[in-house]
């Protein structure tokens, strides 16, 4: 559209309004510049997203291509042999599953109960505020610092030693805030009507929570739990000095045994081995299994969550 006559019109209008004023400058070149800036910004923002997507795909494809060859039935069912230069990784796989189990035994119930407290019982006040602050602080603590805490508290002070129990509890402390947040959201999404209906039937507070609120929030709570399991499976720093070991001859038979864990095994193979060349296929294979476990669990969680959201809507 040609704008020349509108400009003159605009100025005529303006003088009608106020004789002393000047018109807004409408510089034709400036309009071109604006258009170009808009185009450039759009282009840059689009390419930033494409760039990140490409980076992620590159990482995943690279690892899949390199590690695909190492995968075999034997690899995931046999223990490491010959100073971890041969054999499989069943020991760290089982160790990681055990760690998940122990950490969830602590974090899941405590997390859900804490969320119930926040959502159903707490009435403001110092106690609630302190707990909220504690949860947020806990969420911000670096995982390696949690590892130190686990070492000083679980291993040494409580005399659990370098064990499955110490490492699992440390991981549990790490994911506790995540579970609390997820469960709180799920509880908050339970319509107030449900509670009113239960109370109207003469249910007590606890009967309402246990019989009505928790069951309807359950899918959301479980989803949060699954997503935090993904995090537990992939963490290394908190277990390095609390329970994960370089090498274990067999599975942990009790909670006071130490364990091998997949992420720590990746670290060990990649840095500590004298035969780094020789173990290269093992490294990529282990990474692929670790990724499969972590991303597999996380994607199950994401899928459950998106189904849940559809149900809510």
């Amino acid at each position: 559209m040609k704008d020349t006559d509108h400009e003159t019109r605009g100025e005529a209008l303006l003088s009608a309004l106020d004789n002393s004023g000047d018109a807004c400058p409408i510089r034709p070149n400036y309009a071109v510049f604006r258009k170009f800036a808009d185009w450039l910004a759009t282009f840059l923002l689009c390419s930033s997203m494409i760039f990140v997507t490409v980076v992620l795909c590159a990482i995943l494809f690279f690892l899949a291509a390199k590690g695909g060859g190492a995968l075999s039935w034997e690899f995931v069912t046999e223990p490491p042999r010959n100073g971890m230069t041969e054999g499989g990784i069943i020991t760290p796989i089982v160790g990681t599953l055990q760690l998940i189990f122990v950490s969830m035994c602590f974090a899941f119930p405590v997390g859900v109960v804490t969320a119930v407290y926040f959502n159903e019982y707490a009435r403001g006040g110092t106690l609630k505020k302190s707990l909220r602050l504690a949860m947020r602080s806990l969420a911000s603590i670096p995982s390696v610092v949690l590892g130190l805490f686990g070492l000083a508290f679980f291993c040494t002070f409580l005399r659990f030693g370098t064990s499955l129990l110490s490492a699992g509890l440390t991981l549990g402390c790490m994911v506790l805030p995540t579970i609390v947040t997820a469960s709180e959201t799920a509880l908050a999404n339970v319509p107030q009507d449900y509670r009113d209906a239960a109370y109207a039937l003469g249910a007590t507070e606890w009967q309402t929570i246990y019989g009505v609120v928790l069951p309807s929030a359950f899918p959301g709570i479980i989803t949060g739990g699954i997503l935090s399991v993904g995090r537990v499976a992939g963490e290394t720093a908190p277990i390095m000095f609390t329970g994960a070991v370089f090498f274990a001859p067999g599975f942990a038979r009790g909670v006071f045994d130490s364990v091998m864990a997949l992420p720590y095994h990746v670290y060990v193979l990649a840095t500590a081995g004298t035969n780094i060349e020789k173990t290269t296929p093992l490294q990529y294979g282990t990474i692929l299994v670790l990724l499969a476990v972590v991303l597999g669990i996380s994607m199950v969680g994401m899928a459950a969550r998106s189904r849940l959201r559809k149900d809510v809507l």
């Binding site: 309004l17 002393s20 004023g21 000047d22 400058p25 409408i26 400036y30 604006r34």
Partner: peptide, 24 residues
């Protein structure tokens, strides 16, 4: 906001536009 989009940078003229618009 609008005049600035159109490229008006001059503080004095912006002030006039603001006053005129608010008066109107």
């Amino acid at each position: 906001y609008g005049p600035k989009l159109l490229g008006e940078r001059d503080k004095g003229r912006l002030g006039e536009i603001v006053e005129r618009s608010l008066r109107n």
